[in-house]
Computed example of a mutant assay.
Amino acid sequence: MPLCGGLGESANADDDIQKICDSMKPHAEEKTGKSFAVFTAKTYKTQLVSGTNYFIKVHVGEEEHLHIRVYKKLQCNGGEIELTSLQENKSHHDPIVYF
């Protein structure tokens, strides 16, 4: 289990992580000015804060990937999620690090 504030271990994306990505796709497209035919979560890390930050590696076509950071509020604060940051021009081999 990760420490509060620390970045957890990398894990393969599951259906829950893909659902987060699906809901963040329009926001990522708006932020990058691109349209993505593919938006598939591959791996992720979490960070426990006053909620959870999800750092997700997303395949967006051919050899290109994005790293997105999504913040999920605690359930007692509404549980909403928002795209807080992203990094473009990532590859399959780029590790997920804090950004």
Rank of each mutant, 00 (worst) to 15 (best):
A11R: 15
N12H: 13
N12S: 12
N12E: 14
N12M: 15
A13F: 11
A13N: 05
A13I: 05
A13Y: 10
A13H: 08
D14W: 09
D14N: 15
D15F: 12
I17N: 00
Q18N: 08
Q18W: 10
K19L: 13
K19I: 04
K19V: 05
I20R: 03
D22E: 11
S23P: 00
S23Q: 11
S23V: 05
M24V: 06
K25E: 04
K25T: 00
P26Y: 10
H27C: 05
A28D: 02
E29P: 01
E29L: 08
E30D: 09
E30V: 07
E30G: 02
K31R: 12
K31I: 03
K34T: 00
S35Y: 06
S35C: 10
F36A: 08
A37K: 12
V38E: 15
V38K: 14
F39D: 01
F39N: 02
F39W: 06
F39R: 03
F39C: 04
T40E: 07
T40C: 03
T40A: 04
T40F: 04
T40L: 13
K42E: 10
K42G: 05
T43R: 09
T43N: 08
T43V: 07
Y44H: 08
Y44D: 03
K45C: 15
T46A: 06
Q47H: 06
Q47V: 03
L48F: 11
V49G: 09
V49D: 09
S50K: 15
S50L: 14
G51S: 13
G51M: 14
T52I: 15
N53G: 08
Y54W: 03
F55L: 12
F55R: 01
F55T: 00
I56Y: 00
K57M: 03
K57D: 01
K57P: 00
K57E: 02
K57F: 02
H59T: 03
V60H: 01
V60K: 00
G61T: 08
G61V: 07
G61L: 14
E62S: 14
E63I: 09
E64W: 04
E64F: 08
E64C: 07
H65R: 05
H65L: 02
L66E: 01
H67L: 04
I68G: 01
I68N: 01
V70I: 14
V70L: 09
Y71R: 01
Y71G: 01
K72R: 15
K72W: 03
K72Q: 10
L74R: 15
L74W: 11
L74G: 11
Q75G: 05
C76F: 15
C76L: 15
G78A: 08
G78M: 10
E80C: 13
E80G: 10
E80N: 11
E82V: 07
E82Q: 08
E82C: 09
L83T: 02
S85G: 10
S85P: 00
L86H: 06
L86E: 05
E88L: 09
N89K: 15
K90E: 00
K90A: 02
K90I: 00
S91K: 12
S91F: 06
S91G: 08
S91D: 06
